[in-house]
Design a protein around this nucleic acid. Structure first.
Lengths: 131, 131
DNA sequence: TGAGCATTTGAAGAATTCCGCAAGTGGTAA
DNA sequence: TTACCACTTGCGGAATTCTTCAAATGCTCA
């Protein structure tokens, strides 16, 4: 009963682990929108967007209904916005931490000493590729 | 400059998209802990845990340092706790929404009408396994 | 110095996820 | 009815992620 809890949480977050899906949720924060509009704003193929929407639907984060000729999507709960906001905050915190460390290193790190398992997480070389 | 932003956000969330990693972060909310302890609490192989820790490290969510014979890990920013809390809230919201719908269906849904693209996200068959 | 614990790293295969194309489905309007 | 949008689904292949085993690496303590 509590083991699959972590599984559920992980699935929840993994649902957000895709740029297009994040984009969709952010756009939907402004209210319900038809697929057309999402499609116009996001730059992915229609079928791909549809699949991402299906993922969000299955996760219960959005709901859809038909309005005349178009299908509208909306956030199923405003809490989603909180999650995105929290994400933004962390991203900020983590990034500035990195920058701070980076600056520190640049300054000539005689302080923390780069030995131990000080793992900074910075790496400098990971814009677009591979593992 | 803003296109990779969604990419970064997605990566952040994807980092949380694994049960063991979630578990680690939750455990670390109680303060720094040695790998030993995490290992004892999580039930995954040592090497696997180590890899998950590496993922968290690379993402900048945790930091590690050595204390005598053990390596200690801790949250790199308390904001992480917020994220987890937000996740919990959503999970709650989403799940109760599902249950509500489920009840509604069971009651004999003559109301909302199961036509259209009413996508409930429920599925009934996904308790503990798969992936 | 040498044994031994605590962790990490590498590698390879299995399992998932992602992506675009082709083929539906459903509703609207001629 | 037919033609046509607006979307969704099915499918195969490419790319990632996960998992486990074997082999380091780093310390600490006899």
């Amino acid at each position: 009963m509590s083991v699959p809890l972590y599984q559920a949480k992980a699935e929840l977050f993994r649902t957000l682990g895709h740029p297009a899906r994040i984009r969709v949720l952010e756009l939907l924060q402004g209210g319900p929108k038809p697929v057309r509009e999402l499609l116009a704003a996001i730059d992915v193929e229609a079928s791909n967007l549809s699949q991402q929407l299906a993922v969000l639907r299955r996760a219960g984060m959005v709901t859809s209904y038909r309005d005349g000729p178009l299908v509208m999507y909306s956030l199923s709960t405003p809490d989603v916005a909180d999650l995105l906001a929290a994400g933004r905050r962390i991203l900020g915190a983590v990034l500035t931490d990195r920058d701070a460390l980076l600056d520190e290193l640049r300054a000539g790190g005689t302080g923390p000493a780069p030995d131990a398992a000080t793992s900074t997480g910075l790496d400098g070389s990971r814009a677009g590729q591979s593992r």
